[in-house]
Amino acid sequence: MSRQKPSGLAIWLGLSDNSFTRQKTVKFGDATAVNSGRFYSMLTLAVLIVAWVVASVFDLVEPFYWPSISGTWERLLKIVGEGFRNTALLDHVGISVYRVLSGVFYGALVGIPLGFAMGLSSIGRGLFDPVVEFMRPIPPLALIPLIILWFGIDEFAKIFLLFLASLFIMTLAARSGVSSVRITKVHAAYSLGASKLQILRHVILPNALPEIFTGLRTSMGVCWGTVVAAELVAADKGLGSMIMIAKNFLQTDTVVIGIILIGIIGYIIELIMRRLEQWLIPWRGKG
C-alpha cells in the first residue's frame, strides 16, 4: 500500500481515491458513483482512434465504406477552409443549431402556458388532453410528409416541425410541474396573505421550474435528433443536409465528419443545459 498522497491528476482520472471519494464510494456494483472512471473512458477513446489509425495505415477498409484518418483530416481542413457546397462549415452547424433553438423557444412559448392551463384548470385539461395525449407518442419525423404538404420545405416548415416536437414535451413538463406543488406550500402562501395571482407567480411557477427545465433539456435532445433527420429529408443547409449531399457524391469522409460533429454538438448542448440547470435551479430536488 502506497503512503504517498495521490496526485490531483490521478483523482481526476479516477485512478485513485481521495478521502472524499473513498468514503463515498460504494464498494459494490456502481463503484464509480463518485469515482469518475475517466481513465477508462480515455482508454476507450484511445483504442477507437488507434484502431482507425491502424486501419488507415494498413489500408484495411475501402475508403468508400470508411475513410482513412489522414484523408478525413484533410477533408475537414478543406471544409473548414472553403466550406461545403458554397456554405461555410460554421454556417451548416449554425443553421442547425438555430433551427433547434427556435423550435424549442416557440415550443416553450406555447407549451408552458398550455401546460399551466392543463395543470390549473379542469376545463383546460379536458380541452387539450385528447390532442396532447394523442400527439405525444407520435415521433415528430412521422409528421414530416404532412408538413411538407402544408408548408413546403422552406425554413418555416422545419422550425414548425421542431416546434411541434418540443411543444408536447414542454406542455407535459409544465403540467406535471404545476400539479406537483405541495398543497401545504399553497396553503402557507394563502395564510401569508398572497392572492391567487401572487401564488401563481411566486409559488406555482418557481415550484414548476425544475420540471420545466427538465422538459427543456429533453426538448433540446429530441429537437437536435429531429433537425438532423429533417435536414436529411429536405434542406440545402445544415449538418443533416451536408451528410446527405455528401453521400450523393460518395464523400464518405464528409459523412463521417458530419456524424462526429452531430454527436459532439449534441453532447455540448446537454452539458450546457446541465450547467444552466445547476446555476439557475440549485434548489432542484431539495423541497
Partner: peptide, 10 residues
C-alpha cells in the same frame, strides 16, 4: 405553521 415542507425552497 405546518409540519414541514411548507417553506419555499427556491
Amino acid at each position: 405553521v405546518f409540519q414541514q415542507g411548507a417553506l419555499f425552497e427556491w
